[in-house]
Design a protein around this nucleic acid. Structure first.
Length: 535
DNA sequence: GTAGGGTTAATA
DNA sequence: TATTAACCCTAC
């Protein structure tokens, strides 16, 4: 798919309320080259929004804000007061929260570690950078003031108590939400939404809505046993979101609705297909207007990466029209692999109403894919897509930097009631910005955070290749070895059980994510370790 | 998501 | 070789 189309789709999805799990899949599959600063910022903001939505506050937010500051500086955008306040409030909360869990506030290793990471790490590096003449807008007098207070809490019990009694958590949430609201507003709608609004202004019809309803119904009907693996619900969700934008666009072509059906849980394919068909639906008029609107609204092609948009759009039209009209054509990309027309034909029938027939074809195709996969493994040392590669590489490079976090929506209230920590919603890892961090977070602290693009925690291995396909004659899957538990981890686990109670492993994992993500612990690991500790 | 039984690797 | 810690699997 064309990189510009990818960007438009990704920006739109990031701005939507599509679950992070789907965005995660899409980001894994999309070729994320040529990311412009607007998309970078959108990714980071979504990351922050996700974290706040699950009422979790981690040092990931500090990294995000630092990344955005860098983006803004390069783009010549001033740092707002809300952003500075948000950064300071999060830094305070990410430190003070450890006081709450410390049995002995004056000898708490977790609090000390947080002070070292945040105030003696990030903030001090800022101080040094400013002293050397570098402009860092996040470094404020308020931050310096808090640094002194936090440092004094290490030896002054009174300060310590005062900090513990402050609602730094609520304050941080409010400040971050204010900042997010302000920033989303300043960025305006997603490019595709702008285009949709434009098409509505032009009166290009509204028949799409009815048609989309039919298609969604067909999607639901044609999925045997609730779906092709787990893809259908995702496809419908994506379709719903795309419909927000597409509903305003004119629909007039002979779409092959079956082509909309997700194959094997690949939400990207659905998103891409929906978007292609939508964009094609309006024909040249829409594309031309898209181009004009984009170029005129940003004062030239610069903001779109310097592309000749109308020319690019026409190219896309030709590329997409062909397969639509002839029901075959240019190869599409699924899971980062080009698929042939024959496979396309197969997959297009996967979800037909003839479930038995489609299942047979699914089985055939799966066998074919497994066979291909094995062949590829034999031929290629590491078959992971580039995105995963980059993510893994960056993650290892960030082993001494890093972060944590969770998911979200725009347009949340700026000031909200924050639930008690032990009633937090379950954390959903959503970590999309590894690549961006590599570029923008040279001064991160030493906490690692799993990536959005990271492989499933139960599938990733530390000492050997993962092999999820059983192969006769091949040695059985080895066990992961994450290593023995350190005293820091044990302390965090004990403090977590004291704070959240036994059994709330997910909450404990989230609360001490700075510690547990370094070693890649899961909630099951925490449970098992607690069992060992209490035996 | 969690609990608990079972398995495996590391260690004494 | 026995014990223990870490990990896996499955049911709920």
């Amino acid at each position: 798919m064309d990189p510009d189309i990818c960007r438009w789709i990704l920006e739109f999805l990031l701005r939507s309320s599509i679950p992070d799990s789907i965005v995660k899949k899409i980001m894994k599959a999309l070729p994320l080259s040529n990311i412009n600063s607007r998309l970078r910022k959108t990714i980071v903001l979504r990351d922050m929004q996700s974290e706040v939505a699950t009422t979790s506050l981690t040092e990931n937010l500090l990294v995000c804000l630092e990344v955005i500051e860098e983006i803004n500086r390069l783009d010549g955008i001033a740092i707002s007061a809300a952003m500075k306040e948000a950064y300071c409030a999060v830094a305070v909360e990410c430190t003070v929260k450890y006081l709450d869990a410390c049995p002995d506030k004056n000898t708490c290793g977790l609090f000390d570690d947080a002070v070292n990471r945040i105030w003696r790490g990030r903030v001090r590096q800022m101080m040094e950078a400013v002293a050397s003449g570098k402009k860092i807008d996040l470094f404020t007098a308020e931050l310096i003031g808090w640094k002194d207070v936090i440092e004094s809490a290490r030896w002054d019990r009174e300060v310590c108590e005062r900090l513990t009694n402050m609602n730094t958590r609520q304050n941080a949430f409010n400040k971050v939400r204010v900042y997010l609201k302000e920033t989303w507003a300043s960025m305006g709608p997603a490019f595709l939404e702008q285009a949709a609004i434009l098409s509505e202004d032009k009166g290009w019809g509204n028949s799409w809505g009815d048609k989309m309803g039919d298609i969604r119904g067909e999607l639901a009907d044609c999925i045997p046993n609730g779906g092709c693996d787990n893809g259908v619900s995702e496809s419908v969700l994506v379709s719903d979101q795309m419909n927000r934008c597409k509903g305003r666009l004119h629909y007039s072509t002979n779409m092959t609705e079956k082509g909309l059906v997700v194959f094997d849980g690949n939400a990207l394919y659905t998103a891409a297909t929906c978007m292609e068909k939508t964009l094609v639906a309006g024909g040249n008029q829409v594309f031309e207007q898209l181009g004009k609107r984009a170029v005129s609204s940003v004062g030239g092609s610069q903001a779109l990466g310097g592309i000749d948009l109308p020319r690019r759009i026409n190219k896309e039209i030709e590329k997409v029209k062909l397969p639509l009209e002839h029901n075959h054509g240019a190869p599409r990309i699924r899971r980062g692999v080009n698929i042939s027309d024959a496979e396309e034909a197969k997959s297009s029938t996967v979800c037909s109403k003839d479930h038995n027939a489609s299942n047979i074809q699914v089985d055939k195709l799966r066998k074919s894919l497994i066979s291909s996969s094995l062949e590829l493994r034999a031929l290629v040392k590491d078959p992971l897509p580039d995105a995963l590669h980059r993510s893994d590489i960056v993650r290892s490079e960030l082993a001494s930097k890093g972060v944590n976090h969770e998911p979200s929506f725009e347009n949340q209230s700026a000031v909200v009631d924050v639930p008690e920590q032990n009633t937090c919603r379950s954390m959903v890892l959503y970590q999309p910005i590894d690549i961006l961090k590599k570029q923008y977070s040279a001064n991160c602290s030493n906490v690692q955070r799993p990536s959005l693009m990271e492989r499933n925690s139960t599938a990733c291995t530390y000492e050997w290749d993962d092999s999820f396909i059983d192969v006769p004659g091949r040695s059985p899957k080895k066990r992961r070895r994450k290593g023995r538990w350190g005293s820091e981890e044990e302390d965090a686990l004990r403090a977590g059980v004291k704070k959240f109670g036994k059994g709330n492993w997910k909450s404990i994992l989230r609360f001490y994510s700075e510690i547990f993500t370094k070693t890649g612990r899961t909630e099951v690991d925490l449970k098992d370790k607690w069992r060992n500790l209490t035996r």
